[in-house]
Simulated scan of single mutants.
Amino acid sequence: MGDDPVARFEAVYRETYDQITAYAVRRCDSPQDAADAVAETFAIAWRRVNDLPPGQEARLWLYGVARRVLADHRRSAVRHRVRDVELDTEMADLYADAPDSGVGLSAVAAVFRTLTDDDRELLSLVAWEGLERDEIATMLGVSRNAVRIRLYRARRRFSRALDEAGVRFEAKGRMIPAGRSL
């Protein structure tokens, strides 16, 4: 191998890829999560190729990197779930049921969870974070017009999903049960 970092990385990759992949698969809920963790592990190994220990110690070093990557992924998933619960609570505050409405907020939250991650994130940035289109555009690295279009489409899909679930709102934002007219 010598001192060539590319050759060293390639050798370690060939020797350890299957073991690191098996380690990640046994610890992840989905094959995609495992693949992401393995990719991130080897990306870190590539960036830190000069820190790779020699021989079998490289495999152990990679196990340590993979363990930290998986821990980061788990913490991120927990934060995501907490954010969803907080958003559900925020939506409950915004769209609290009138005593006579008969429509539970859980219906709105359930419909919201059926949206794609991108739609939920975009709607959350507007409703929950209070960001303006130009701020979202900067954050996402897209044009303000792209945000306008995506937001319009996300709102339309959310509205359609609420209609399909039988959740409707009066002009002032109060929910009314399915079957009652405005």
Rank of each mutant, 00 (worst) to 15 (best):
L140H: 06
L70K: 02
D118F: 07
A107K: 15
S106I: 07
A77C: 08
A146D: 03
E90M: 10
S143T: 11
G102H: 08
A92S: 12
D134I: 10
T114Y: 02
A127H: 14
D117R: 14
R75V: 06
L62F: 03
G102D: 03
A77Q: 15
M91A: 10
D117L: 13
G104L: 11
H73G: 14
G104V: 06
T116G: 11
D119G: 02
M139R: 15
G55F: 05
G64M: 04
D117M: 09
V108L: 11
R67V: 08
L140A: 03
W128H: 14
R83P: 07
D84Q: 15
V69N: 07
G141C: 07
A109H: 06
D88I: 01
S101V: 05
I136P: 00
A137K: 04
P99D: 07
D118P: 00
E121D: 13
Y95C: 05
T89F: 14
R67I: 05
W61F: 12
V85C: 07
P54M: 05
L140I: 01
R133K: 14
V126C: 02
D93G: 11
L131F: 11
T116S: 15
L131Y: 09
V82L: 13
V126G: 01
E121I: 01
A66T: 05
R81L: 12
D88Q: 10
R133C: 05
V82F: 09
I149K: 14
E121V: 04
T114L: 00
Q56S: 15
A110W: 04
L122G: 01
W61K: 06
L125V: 00
L105Q: 14
V82I: 13
E121C: 06
L122Q: 01
A71M: 08
S101A: 14
S106W: 10
S143P: 03
L131V: 06
D100M: 04
V69R: 02
D97E: 15
V69P: 03
G130R: 07
I149E: 12
S101D: 13
S124R: 13
V103G: 02
T89C: 11
L62D: 01
V147T: 02
V111E: 06
R79W: 03
D118N: 08
P54K: 09
L140G: 00
E129Y: 11
A137Q: 02
R75D: 05
E90Q: 10
E86A: 10
A58V: 07
M139D: 05
S124A: 13
V126P: 01
A109C: 09
R59D: 02
D118E: 10
R144L: 00
G102M: 04
A66E: 04
T114G: 04
D93Y: 08
G104H: 14
S124C: 05
R133T: 10
L70N: 03
T114M: 01
